[in-house]
Amino acid sequence: CHSECLGNCSQPDDPTKCVACRNFYLDGRCVETCPPPYYHFQDWRCVNFSFCQDLHHKCKNSRRQGCHQYVIHNNKCIPECPSGYTMNSSNLLCTPCLGPCPKVCHLLEGEKTIDSVTSAQELRGCTVINGSLIINIRGGNNLAAELEANLGLIEEISGYLKIRRSYALVSLSFFRKLRLIRGETLEIGNYSFYALDNQNLRQLWDWSKHNLTITQGKLFFHYNPKLCLSEIHKMEEVSGTKGRQERNDIALKTNGDQASCENELLKFSYIRTSFDKILLRWEPYWPPDFRDLLGFMLFYKEAPYQNVTEFDGQDACGSNSWTVVDIDPPLRSNDPKSQNHPGWLMRGLKPWTQYAIFVKTLVTFSDERRTYGAKSDIIYVQTDATNPSVPLDPISVSNSSSQIILKWKPPSDPNGNITHYLVFWERQAEDSELFELDYCLKGLKLPSRTWSPPFESEDSQKHNQSEYEDSAGECCSCPKTDSQILKELEESSFRKTFEDYLHNVVFVPRKT
């Protein structure tokens, strides 16, 4: 048989008469490798580009789960590009990614509803959504962080984005990388972005840091009482949809009607710091009717980097990364020049730590249904340095008659930039024990000054392991946590139920 035959053949030295091919099969003959313009397919066939392209389009058009959109890589027609490569849609070739590779997620039936953290986790790592997304989240724990972890990498949506009755959302900033909504599939009414009845939605994105392009379709905003109209108009300008909307697409009466839409800028007039305090004062603000001013709200939190936005980490279910302080308005003076500047002394802060701070007014709604208010920009203030805590785990070892090696770990709280350490030492008198000992005694162990690591005695271990207080009263049991108490109650309830079950099964009433 021919060298490319495997198993047997019907005619000697003829690659077209093989029972099976050793390498690849091409047009009725066995070959060692697939010549151009053919590609290896499933490690035994040679196919042309049209064959591989037909497989790709067949799966793409069917949208069946589990099928493969075949691509070409290293002269092979394979189910998908290997790690580190992405497909070129024009020629199906796998090309190296520039940075992290995109991950295209194809949605069944063309859309997916995100109504819980669990459903959001199914899209973790996706960068391109081939379909439409509907966000409908009523509640949950730590929602802002969970949504950002699972949806934060999405850069492109081919269909539309719909935010509907998501009472738990305060902001859409968890879509931190969303840059493009194509609108290839539109919501009824030709809408590519749809926001309806979101009672706590206050911000779409921080438009000073976020760009969003909507290729096709219109915007729809109705019944978002805490979303200011200025935020919607800003989205029109940034996304390129200005002029597409009709009169009733953006409701003037049901958007922002319960919001404090600040239209003035508060400026800080005085800032002073110490290692654990920050004193702030800002310019006074009074609405047209000074009785509408209820006070100020001061927001602050630790910020290692200057990239904080107002609604980071917030949701309507209680999660809030900001510390909020309510401040009463100052006494009002008739003389504008003698107006008191409101302020606040922030206490209990960490030394040498940068804080993000902003302040906003708290006002009631005027009778004319106009909203007044003022808010400052987010500023960054760093507390002063102070003395560091003591170095940890000092170790001293003498390696000769004239040297001592000293080692330690950095302090747990540096409280500033540590530039150097101060080492103090003092000579001590020799131990009298060394002169009084009889060095001729056998088995004498000389006193040693070398360091030995501390260890816990058996008594201390027994005390720590004991669940009861000892007789001397030195140790006591740790208080039980809520989960331990709940577990004990469940076990007790189970024992009672099981005992009742045994009584009912074992003891049967005697027939009379």
Rank of each mutant, 00 (worst) to 15 (best):
V238G: 10
H210R: 14
P304K: 15
I327C: 03
D206R: 03
L293G: 07
A374D: 01
G240Y: 15
N211D: 11
Q382V: 09
P391Q: 01
K253N: 12
H222L: 08
Q203V: 04
G131I: 00
N150Y: 12
E187Y: 04
F299R: 12
S269C: 08
C317S: 03
N142P: 12
A385F: 04
A168S: 01
T383S: 04
T361L: 03
A356V: 02
I188K: 07
L151G: 01
N320L: 09
F174V: 10
Y300C: 15
G152M: 06
R347G: 02
E283S: 09
Y305Q: 06
S260V: 09
N211C: 09
F175V: 06
K162A: 03
L161H: 00
S274A: 03
F358D: 01
S402R: 11
L180M: 06
A120H: 10
A259C: 14
I271Q: 14
R291E: 01
G159A: 04
K301E: 03
R332T: 11
E109F: 02
Y191A: 09
L219S: 07
R176V: 12
E231D: 15
F290Q: 02
E310H: 13
K375L: 14
F358V: 11
T383V: 02
D367N: 05
K242W: 14
S338F: 11
P304G: 06
L180H: 10
K301H: 04
K360V: 13
T273K: 14
E262V: 06
T241C: 14
W282A: 01
T254W: 04
I135R: 01
R124F: 03
Y194A: 12
T323A: 12
I134D: 15
N248P: 07
P351R: 06
L227D: 00
E368W: 12
S166R: 00
K226G: 10
R332M: 05
E236K: 14
R176K: 14
N141E: 14
N263A: 12
D393T: 11
P330R: 12
N190W: 01
N399A: 11
Y223Q: 05
G183R: 02
L349P: 01
H341I: 11
P304I: 07
M346W: 02
T254Q: 15
N248R: 14
L298A: 01
S166H: 02
G240P: 02
Q258F: 04
I154G: 00
H210W: 08
E146V: 04
T241S: 08
C317D: 15
W408H: 00
E246R: 11
R182Q: 02
Q354N: 09
N307S: 08
K234P: 01
Q203F: 03
Y285P: 02
Y300E: 01
A251D: 02
F174P: 06
G139R: 13
N211T: 10
R179L: 07
N399F: 15
L229Q: 13
Y191I: 14
D312L: 06
F268Q: 00
L133K: 02
T364Q: 01
Q382T: 11
L186H: 15
Q382K: 12
R179Q: 05
T213E: 15
D289Q: 02
Y380G: 02
A149D: 11
L279F: 08
L406T: 13
G343P: 01
F220Q: 03
Y305G: 11
L279T: 01
P288T: 10
R291A: 04
P304R: 13
K337N: 10
E146Q: 08
V381A: 12
K267E: 02
N136T: 04
Q382A: 15
E155N: 11
S321T: 12
P329Q: 12
R176L: 04
P304D: 08
G243P: 01
A145S: 09
R369E: 11
K350L: 10
S171N: 10
D326V: 02
A356L: 01
K350N: 03
L161P: 01
N190E: 06
E302D: 10
N150D: 05
N320T: 12
K162Y: 10
L229D: 09
Q403Y: 15
N141P: 10
Q199E: 15
P284M: 14
S166E: 02
N387D: 02
E231H: 12
S401I: 13
Y223C: 09
L219F: 06
G256V: 07
K277N: 15
L294P: 07
C261F: 04
E184D: 15
A356N: 01
Q258D: 05
V390I: 15
K350C: 14
K209N: 06
D315V: 07
D312K: 14
I404S: 06
L153V: 12
M346F: 06
V397H: 11
G125L: 11
V381I: 14
L204G: 05
S274G: 03
Y223R: 10
N320F: 11
L201Y: 00
W207G: 03
D257C: 09
I378E: 01
C126P: 00
P329I: 07
T364S: 10
L227T: 10
D292G: 06
A385V: 03
A251P: 11
E368S: 09
K209I: 14
L196S: 06
E146S: 04
F296Q: 15
S119I: 14
Q339C: 08
R179N: 07
D335S: 15
I327Y: 04
E156P: 00
S166F: 05
A144V: 15
Q121E: 13
D335Y: 14
L265M: 11
L331H: 10
G189F: 12
K337W: 06
E246G: 14
S173M: 10
A149N: 13
L229Y: 11
R244M: 14
T353H: 13
E109Q: 11
N190M: 14
S192G: 13
I129K: 00
E368V: 15
K218V: 14
V363T: 08
W205P: 01
V170K: 04
T118E: 12
D315R: 04
G313Q: 12
L219H: 03
W352V: 12
S230Y: 01
Q199I: 07
T241I: 09
V359G: 01
T273L: 05
N334Q: 13
S319Y: 14
W352C: 14
I405H: 10
S269L: 13
K242R: 07
N320S: 07
T383G: 00
N190T: 07
G343V: 01
E236T: 13
V117L: 12
E156G: 04
G243E: 11
M346I: 06
S338P: 10
G295R: 02
E148P: 09
D384P: 11
N142T: 15
L153T: 14
L201E: 03
F174H: 07
P287R: 04
F296C: 04
R165A: 14
P225V: 09
L406M: 15
P342R: 07
K301M: 14
S166A: 06
I250P: 08
K301D: 12
T215K: 05
G131T: 01
D289K: 03
W207A: 06
S158F: 11
L229P: 01
L349A: 08
Y191E: 08
L212H: 02
D292R: 09
M346R: 02
H210I: 04
K234E: 13
G343R: 04
D249P: 14
D326I: 04
D328A: 11
K301F: 08
R291M: 13
Y305P: 11
Q306T: 12
S173W: 08
E187K: 14
F174D: 01
E236S: 11
Q354W: 12
I188A: 07
Q199F: 09
D257Y: 09
N211R: 09
F299G: 06
N141G: 14
E264C: 04
L229V: 15
S319K: 04
T213I: 14
P411N: 01
K301I: 13
I214Q: 03
L169E: 02
G313I: 13
R332Y: 05
C228P: 05
N248M: 14
F175Y: 02
W286P: 03
Q245R: 09
N200V: 06
I135Y: 02
K277C: 15
C261A: 10
D328L: 02
Q203L: 04
E264T: 06
D312I: 13
S400P: 04
G240W: 14
G373R: 02
N263R: 13
K242C: 15
R124Q: 03
R176S: 13
S158E: 04
L279V: 12
F193A: 02
N141A: 15
P288K: 07
Y167C: 14
I154P: 00
K242V: 12
I214R: 05
P304T: 12
P288Y: 00
E109P: 13
L279Y: 15
W322D: 02
V324P: 04
L107I: 08
F221T: 05
R281N: 01
L186R: 13
Y355L: 01
E122R: 07
R332Q: 04
P336Y: 02
S402A: 15
D257A: 15
I405R: 11
S119A: 03
R202V: 13
W207Q: 04
N130C: 01
T383I: 00
R272L: 01
R247C: 05
N130T: 11
K162G: 11
C228R: 09
L147P: 01
I181M: 04
W207R: 02
N307K: 05
V238E: 10
V104H: 12
K242S: 08
S173V: 09
F275R: 15
A168Y: 10
L108S: 10
Q403T: 08
K103W: 04
T254R: 07
R347H: 04
D328K: 04
I114D: 00
S116D: 14
